[in-house]
């Protein structure tokens, strides 16, 4: 069996190397990806059409916003899937506690330094996350990145202190809600343009809502959808973490 697998790996590698012979030079400005019609168009026209200096964000959130919507859906689906497979399916935490098995919920050892320093860092991290989200138009950043940092901050908090107590503050139901809200923001924004006569996700049409010029409307719409993405990504990341750590059991009350 191992021989078979080795052969397959070698064949695949050989194929890839064979193809590489033909690649354009590394980072060449003449390669089709750079010099092609598509990229040139983006380079020349993005700022004029959307007033967003960060080309990557613009392509991500506007030109190919449909892709990003579904990427967000993928994240949401992953969370939903884990919840569906692992979870007990109980959304409403009952007042009576659901006892958790002992092996899960490892209690991290109490360490004063870790706990205090984490507590001090977390607000800063969260602020930074929001910054990354908001500043995605001008510098590397955006919804995904911001959302992940936000989630990481919560996870850090939970890891460094009493997991149960922290986790109880943001229940499963809340997580899924937030995830849904994120998607609804994104897809809803796109659907709004349908009602205004444009195509799905066509931000142009929303200038009726904003008393700004059409280009700013695009820029702001991008921010809004990025916010949606951030909602979803952060809450689902947290949900996945919580689900995996707890093996799917509901967060029991503190008294349990």
């Amino acid at each position: 069996m191992k021989v078979f697998q080795t052969i397959i790996a070698v064949v695949l590698g050989a194929l890839l190397i064979y193809a590489e012979a033909d690649f354009p030079a590394w980072a060449s400005s003449k390669s089709p990806a750079n010099a092609g019609e598509l990229s040139q168009y983006y380079i020349k026209n993005i700022y004029d059409e959307t007033l967003v200096p960060n080309m990557v964000t613009a392509v991500l959130a506007d030109y190919r916003g449909y892709d990003t919507l579904f990427e967000t859906v993928v994240v949401f689906t992953a969370g939903l899937a884990i919840f569906a497979i692992l979870g007990t399916g109980v959304m409403r935490e009952k007042k009576t506690a659901v006892p958790a098995p002992k092996r899960i919920y490892s209690e991290p050892p109490f360490d004063l330094i870790v706990r205090i320093s984490t507590r001090m860092l977390v607000p800063v991290i969260q602020l930074f996350a929001l910054y990354v989200l908001a500043h995605g138009h001008h510098s590397p950043g955006g919804g995904f990145q911001g959302g992940v940092i936000l989630a990481a901050s919560f996870i850090m908090l939970e890891l460094s202190s009493d997991l149960r107590a922290e986790a109880a503050k943001l229940t499963h139901r809340m997580s899924i809600w937030l995830g849904i809200i994120g998607i609804v923001i994104y897809a809803g924004w796109g659907t709004l343009s349908l009602f205004f006569g444009g195509h799905f996700l066509d931000y142009d049409m929303l200038q009726a809502l904003f008393p700004l010029d059409p280009l700013m409307a695009r820029s702001h719409s991008m921010l809004i959808v990025e916010v949606g993405v951030a909602f979803t990504v952060s809450s689902i990341m947290l949900l996945i973490f919580r689900q995996l750590v707890s093996g799917g059991y509901s967060i029991p009350d503190k008294q349990a």
Binding site: L38, Y42, G65, Y66, H199, D202
Partner: peptide
């Protein structure tokens, strides 16, 4: 049907 109103190949 052009998503986002962008024509191909710039949009989807």
């Amino acid at each position: 049907y052009a998503m986002g109103g962008w024509s191909a190949p710039f949009g989807i």
